[in-house]
Write a protein that binds this DNA or RNA. Sequence first.
DNA 1: AATCATTAAAGAAATTTTTCTTTAATGAAA
DNA 2: TTTCATTAAAGAAAAATTTCTTTAATGATT
Lengths: 217, 217
Amino acid sequence: MVQYSKKIQGVPEPTIRRMPSYLAFAEGLLRKGQQFVSSTQIANYMNIDPTQVTKDLSYTTIVGKTRVGYEVKAIVDVLSEFLGFSVMDNAFLVGAGSLGSALLHDSGLNHFGLNIEAAFDVNPATIGRKINDVEVFHIDQFRDLAQELNVIMGIITVPAENAQTVADLMVAWGIKAIWNFTPARIKVPDDIIVQNTTLYSNLAIIFNKLHHERKEE
Amino acid sequence: MVQYSKKIQGVPEPTIRRMPSYLAFAEGLLRKGQQFVSSTQIANYMNIDPTQVTKDLSYTTIVGKTRVGYEVKAIVDVLSEFLGFSVMDNAFLVGAGSLGSALLHDSGLNHFGLNIEAAFDVNPATIGRKINDVEVFHIDQFRDLAQELNVIMGIITVPAENAQTVADLMVAWGIKAIWNFTPARIKVPDDIIVQNTTLYSNLAIIFNKLHHERKEE
DNA sequence: AATCATTAAAGAAATTTTTCTTTAATGAAA
DNA sequence: TTTCATTAAAGAAAAATTTCTTTAATGATT
Ligand SMILES: NC(=O)c1ccc[n+]([C@@H]2O[C@H](COP(=O)([O-])OP(=O)(O)OC[C@H]3O[C@@H](n4cnc5c(N)ncnc54)[C@H](O)[C@@H]3O)[C@@H](O)[C@H]2O)c1
Ligand SMILES: NC(=O)c1ccc[n+]([C@@H]2O[C@H](COP(=O)([O-])OP(=O)(O)OC[C@H]3O[C@@H](n4cnc5c(N)ncnc54)[C@H](O)[C@@H]3O)[C@@H](O)[C@H]2O)c1
């Protein structure tokens, strides 16, 4: 397949994955009052190659100065803009159980541009409660509130067997992106963005390094 | 650089990441009584290419039968063995806050071979409590218990600014692998395995697809 | 029994991502 | 001022990963 326009497929996903860490590191430096940071310094923090940092940052408008490095403030500003962390997107969370509650408590999400407007559940014990100021409604109210509030993302933290049902609901009410924390894969129309966040992948990687490898690293 | 022995660096990480999902899917099929499953079926569930599934499974001892597919039971058995999910590894969790509690409640970890022996915190309000049958101790007791119990993994769910302190403690008491849920990168000796699980990377990917892309996908 | 269609497997090719190499800039030190 | 060392940037090369192609097997259909 011929590529007619360079870079149409955007920034490499591994790059995007690393960027929030660059941002968090730069924010730390900014708080400490450091004005410039070199790729070497960032790379050292991240345990990666310095040229990787340079490459990654080259996808943005950030430019470094030879012998000085990058301006910390510029990294913070450009990266949070670039990553979409500087505008607030509204989300609904469905499944206010243990993981759902943890996410509702996590101020990091808010800091990185995600505002959870409301939570939904089916358990009478949790409905009506407020978790970290976010009210928990019955799932049947999802539709009405979705229309009322401008919500583009749905977060799924129900048991895996209910993930598809919830996803269908979200699609039906016009949500654009779904962040799925269950190990189940959901089926949605092509234009809906799905991000699966499966903890157990990470566990598998640790175990693999722990049990297998250990030869040459 | 010449590669003297093929495959010495083991199975590709992306493959390992996908395997727990294959396993979970196969477990579901097994419960439903399905005896065989084709790569196409798995691929369809995962929204990936069928040859990807075949390639991934070829790293294990699983062999499929033409025109029939793979034996579901074999996938479950071989994969859970391969991923290290069939032997229990013991872990300590440090930071019994919202995320820590959620993890302690998650039966999936146990199912996939991770047993959290004990939790630690510094907050007097949580110390002495039991969360899902796991007792919360004061962090000062970490050393004694680590020696007493055979624990090889440490899970860090404290605030980011305390991550390094906790990591140092874990290294000092001989833990082999660290699962770090804070956005902070920790510095440890080379022989310690570190797995960073950063939620915000996933958020960045969703936002990127939501805001940027949307051209040709 | 013959044909057909589906599938796993192996290898090749393409693509993507990382690492290496070279160049040029520039602040600090001599 | 001159030299030196550090750094960003760009491009080339290498490595890793995914996708495509071909082959062979075999259950189902005619
Ligand atoms: N707890 C964790 O640390 C953790 C970590 C990773 C992944 N997960 C995954 O997240 C999911 C949720 O885990 P959990 O531990 O929070 O479970 P949980 O049982 O604590 O919470 C699930 C919640 O969803 C609600 N619910 C069930 N069906 C619903 C529906 N149809 N509509 C709305 N709400 C519904 C339940 O009432 C409950 O409150 C699971 O798939 C789990 O595998 C959990
Ligand atoms: N809550 C979430 O959903 C979520 C999601 C992703 C990542 N995280 C990250 O996980 C970390 C913890 O988040 P949280 O929301 O659970 O915070 P939290 O404040 O609810 O919990 C932190 C716990 O750590 C304890 N603690 C602090 N210092 C300690 C020390 N030195 N030793 C032992 N215990 C100590 C505190 O007493 C508290 O109980 C943060 O870095 C956060 O960014 C949280």
